[in-house]
Design a protein around this nucleic acid. Structure first.
Lengths: 346, 346
DNA sequence: CGGGATCCCTGAATCGATTCAGGGATTCGG
DNA sequence: CCGAATCCCTGAATCGATTCAGGGATCCCG
C-alpha cells in the first residue's frame, strides 16, 4: 500500500527532496536519470518518490519544458459528419495507440462555432497541445489556412491540394471510386450508373465523383446529366434516391459517396419494389462497420482509418520533434470489399 | 487580419504589457475583468491583446491557478468492450458537449496495462485533468478502488455497489432486462428462454442476468441450468449459440446481454436453418446503432448513452467546483425498443 | 604532500500567469 | 487649503519542475 497524501496530488519535488535530504534539483535530475547523479542516489530518490507517491505535476513540467505532453485531435462538430460518426472512433483508436507509446495524452477538440476564433486554434496557441491532427475540414476553411500557415505542428487527414506544403495522410479516393465503379461495369454489366455525391466543399466529394466519371468515360459510358449532392447522411441517401426515382431517369446501379448513403438508398429502392442487387446494384465507400451488417451486405471500399490515424500521429510526433517527414503526403492503399449489394456472392 | 508572431505562440503577458505601457499584473487583471481596473484601461488592453494575437499560456495558468481546465474520460483498452465500441462514441459526444460549455478540454485516457500503475491515475495525480469520468471498470479493479478513495473528483458510469459513496450515473440494467424478457414471455408466448450473458466481473452482467431470472420466476418459468457466459463480442454470441445448439437444449427465445451478441446469435441460428423470429425470438440490449440496421431489426433496450454522459459530466463539474451532488447515484430511464427479431412488426 | 582531475551535488534563474498588499495620484468634504 | 477617501495600478511573491554554471569533496599520481 502506497502512502496517501491528505490533499490530493500535493506531493512535490521539495517533499521528496526533504525526505532524502537533498536539493530538489538533484531529485529532479535523479528522476530523469541524469548522468551526473550517482547510481546509488538515483535508487534512493526513486524509492523515496515511490514511497511518497510522487507524481510530476504536469503544469510545472509543461511550463518549464515548453511542451505540453499532449496532442489534439480536431474533429468537426457541424453537419452530419460530426464526431458521432464511426470514422472518428477508428481514428481515435489509432491516435491513442500511438500516443500511449509516446507517453502523450490525447485532447479532443471540437470545431464547433464556425464564426468565432476556432477553438482548436486556441488549444494550440495556448500550448495545451504540442500539435494537432485535423480530421475533416472544408476546402476553404479560413481557420485551417491560418493554422497551417502558423507553422505549428499540424497533420491533416485527407488530401488538401490547396496546402501543398502541409503534412497530410490520406487515401486515393479517386482511384477507390474508379475501382468500385469499374466493378459495377465489368463484373455486373451495369450501364446506367448514378453517383450520389457527398457534400460540396469537401475534397473527398470532388475526388470520388471524379473517379466515378473516369470509370464511366473509360468504359465509353456517359455520365448522367444531373449531379446528385448529399451530405453523407443516411437520410440524404434516402432523399436523393426518392428524387432519383421521381425523376424518371433510367438507372441500374448506384454508387453512393459513403456507406450510410448507400444504406439509405437501398431502403428506398426496396420500399419502391426494386430488388437490390437484382434490379439495381448499390455500392458505397468507407466500410466502417455498417456495410458489413446490413442485408444485403454493402460492397464498398475500405478506408484503413486506424492505420491512417497511426501514420498521422507518427508524423505529428516527428513534426513536434523537429523532424520534417521526407514526403509531405502519404497515401495509404484502399481495398475493394465485395459483398452482396453489387450482385456478387448471390 | 491579425498579427502573427514569428515564433509560434510566443506572445506573453509581458508583450501585451509593454505594448500598452503597463505592468503585467494590470494586464492580467484587465483580461480577467477584475473590478479594480478602469473600464477604459480594460478596453485598451483587450484591443492590444487582440492585435498581438495573445493567447493565455495554459501551463502558466494551470500552474498558478492549480486547475488544468480539462477533464479525463477514462476508457478501457482491454477486452472486447474497448473503446472502438460505439458506446464510447456516444459518451464522447455527450462529454464534449458539456465540456465545451465549461470551456474545458477533454483528455482521452486509456486504461491499458492492468498491472502497472494505471495510466489514468497518473493523469489525475499529475493534475493534467481536474477530474475524471470512468466509463467501464471491472468489479474488483484495485486501481479504481484507490482512485475513488483518493478523494479526487471522479464520476463513475454504471452501478458500483462496492463504492456506495462514489458519485455515479447509470441505468437500471435489472429492470431493463426484466422488461425485455417479459416482452418475450407475454407478447410472444415464449417459454424456453436462454440468456447469453456478458463477461464475468462486470456489474451489468450480474444485473441483466438477475433481471432475466426475475422475469422467468415471475412467470412461473424455470431458468435453464447452464449459465452462458460471453464477452459482449459478436463472436462470443456466435460461439455460445453454436454451443447452445450442440447442447440439444430446447429453446425458443434468446436474450443476449447486448446487441452484438444478439447479432452473432441470429447469424448462427439462420445458418442452422432456424428462422428468426419465427422459430426463435432474439433480443439484445444497448441500441447503439447495430440493432437498427440488421435484418431482422433487433428488439432491444435503449441505453441513453449521450444523456448519461452529459449527466456524468455535469456532476463531475459540480464535484470539481466543490459541490457535492445531492444524490450520489443517478439512474436514467431505459426504453424498450421493439423491432422485428422478437416477433413483432412481422 | 600538493596539484589537478573527477565525481556529485547545490543554488539560482527561468518558464507564464495570477494575486494581493501597498502606495501614488486624484477627488472630495470641510 | 489640508486631510481623508477613492480609484487604479505596481511590485513582489508564488505555483512546480528543470537546467546549468559553479564549487566542495574525494581520488589519483608524481
Amino acid at each position: 500500500m502506497t502512502a496517501r497524501s491528505s490533499g490530493p496530488g500535493r506531493v512535490t519535488l521539495i517533499d521528496v527532496a526533504t525526505h532524502v535530504g537533498m536539493s530538489r534539483s538533484a531529485v529532479s535530475m535523479a528522476l530523469s536519470d541524469h548522468p551526473e547523479i550517482a547510481a546509488r542516489t538515483k535508487e534512493r530518490v526513486r524509492t523515496a518518490a515511490r514511497e511518497l507517491d510522487y507524481v510530476t505535476n504536469s503544469a510545472g513540467r509543461a511550463l518549464r519544458s515548453q511542451s505540453a505532453g499532449s496532442i489534439a485531435l480536431i474533429v468537426p462538430d457541424t453537419g452530419p459528419l460530426t464526431f458521432g460518426h464511426p470514422y472518428f472512433m477508428h481514428l481515435l483508436v489509432g491516435v491513442t495507440e500511438v500516443c500511449s507509446g509516446h507517453d502523450a495524452n490525447v485532447i479532443i477538440s471540437t470545431n464547433k462555432d464556425e464564426n468565432s476564433v476556432a477553438a482548436y486554434e486556441r488549444v494550440l496557441r495556448s500550448r495545451a497541445a504540442d500539435g494537432a491532427i485535423v480530421t475533416v475540414a472544408r476546402v476553404g476553411d479560413p481557420h485551417l489556412s491560418s493554422l497551417v500557415d502558423s507553422g505549428l505542428p499540424v497533420v491533416l487527414m485527407g488530401r488538401y491540394p490547396q496546402f501543398p506544403d502541409a503534412v497530410s495522410v490520406g487515401i486515393d479516393d479517386l482511384s477507390g471510386a474508379r475501382q468500385v465503379t469499374e466493378h459495377l461495369i465489368t463484373e455486373h454489366q451495369r450501364r446506367h450508373l448514378v453517383h450520389l455525391g457527398g457534400p460540396l466543399g469537401h475534397q473527398v466529394t470532388i475526388e470520388r465523383r471524379k473517379g466515378f466519371r473516369q470509370a464511366l468515360t473509360a468504359a465509353g459510358l456517359k455520365p448522367t446529366k444531373k449531379v446528385w449532392t448529399g451530405d453523407f447522411s443516411e437520410e440524404s441517401g434516402r432523399e436523393l434516391t426518392r428524387q432519383l426515382l421521381a425523376s424518371g431517369e433510367r438507372f441500374d446501379a448506384i454508387f453512393a459517396a459513403n456507406d450510410e448513403m448507400a444504406y439509405g438508398a437501398i431502403g428506398v429502392l426496396q420500399a419502391d419494389g426494386l430488388a437490390v442487387p437484382r434490379d439495381v446494384s448499390v455500392v458505397g465507400f468507407d466500410d466502417f462497420g455498417l456495410a458489413r451488417v446490413t442485408t444485403p451486405g454493402i460492397t464498398t471500399v475500405r478506408i484503413p482509418a486506424e492505420e491512417l490515424a497511426r501514420a498521422a500521429t507518427e508524423r505529428l510526433f516527428q513534426l513536434i520533434g523537429g523532424v520534417d517527414p521526407p514526403e509531405r503526403h502519404l497515401t495509404l492503399p484502399l481495398e475493394l470489399i465485395v459483398r452482396e449489394s453489387c450482385g456478387c456472392n448471390g
